[in-house]
Design a protein around this nucleic acid. Structure first.
Lengths: 173, 173
DNA sequence: TCATATGTATGCATTATGCATATATTGAAT
DNA sequence: ATTCAATATATGCATAATGCATACATATGA
């Protein structure tokens, strides 16, 4: 088989999907970059510090501060006192939670469109293949959070997430 | 089956792959945004006008002019006279061709890493699924070029590219 | 031959980011 | 208790990559 052709197809699909994801999440939030991912992630992990959020989003610290500034100004995120006098705990406001829901709903559409032509059997095959690939791609906790930063974790049971499983295997061998 | 879980896995893989593609192509070119895609695309379609390139990359016209400015300044792209007194024809220089090769080589790595854990049979399954999805996602020529804007078309025979095939089917029904 | 369309370029602004540095708080060693 | 290093956050400044409005140059057709 022509392996390189498969690489091209995989890259093309990924690019096309992420184009769609970016358009959807930016349309739903009015912000580009990592802002939509920040809202999604804070919904799953409320109380994250600025530093921790930045590591998940792979932003510099100042970049994260500015991102949180933008989200706070929209009334979507609150800076509360954290465990420390230094540390902040970030929480979604009610409006932020609502906005997050909208982002996730819009995010589904390009994904749905991609798997629309697949039969039920195809989807099972695909799911298995995705699990295998994601398991291989996840090497530490940081990366696990990064990979899942736009996931609707509500519908993805943690004990069956290949990304989290892989991470847990690394940590508790 | 839990369809939404499949959507999450697909989105997570796409995001992870494109993170890798972006890092690889930016590392190989020193430019982010659509600059790497511009070099790749101009290698496949030499003589493109600024307007046509911008439509493939989905950039505004001024954005494309500035992008070409940057690539020309690096000595990677030449503006030559086109079919018109108005129209330009863009070509890669020798250095640009070399840089494109490097970008494509680096681009393979994150893709290769993703399929590494798959068996030969898995890869055939995956290829078939990707073909089906890409066929559904391609609706016009513009989109076809956009989806393939980072593809190593040299290794992807045109008559077997689901993206191009789909487009040709649309145009010559 | 002149009006309109087409392709390209420029001025200016914005978004999202990074680097260097400042500030505030904590914890640990003296 | 005091001081110093580590940690968490914030700010000043700069940059990359882009868009909008507009100007300019060339072509085309009535």
């Amino acid at each position: 088989m022509n392996n390189e052709r498969t690489l091209n197809l995989l890259g093309a699909l990924a690019l096309s999907l992420v184009d769609g994801l970016n358009a959807a999440t930016e349309g739903a939030s009015g912000f580009g970059g990592e802002a939509p991912a920040a809202l999604v992630t804070l919904g799953v992990e409320p109380g994250l510090s600025i530093k921790a959020l930045g590591q998940i989003l792979r932003l510099s610290h100042p970049g994260t501060v500015r991102l949180v500034d933008r989200l706070e100004k929209q009334g979507w995120v609150e800076r509360r006192h954290g465990t420390d006098g230094r540390t902040l705990a970030l929480f979604l406001t009610e409006a932020g939670t609502e906005r997050r829901r909208l982002i996730l709903a819009e995010r589904r559409q390009p994904l749905q469109r991609a798997i629309a032509p697949l039969t039920a059997a195809d989807r099972e095959q695909l799911t298995t293949l995705l699990e295998t690939m994601l398991t291989a791609l996840t090497t530490d906790e940081q990366e696990a959070f990064a990979i899942c930063r736009l996931c609707e974790e509500e519908v993805c049971p943690g004990d069956r997430c290949p990304v989290e499983q892989q991470y847990c295997r690394m940590v508790h061998p």
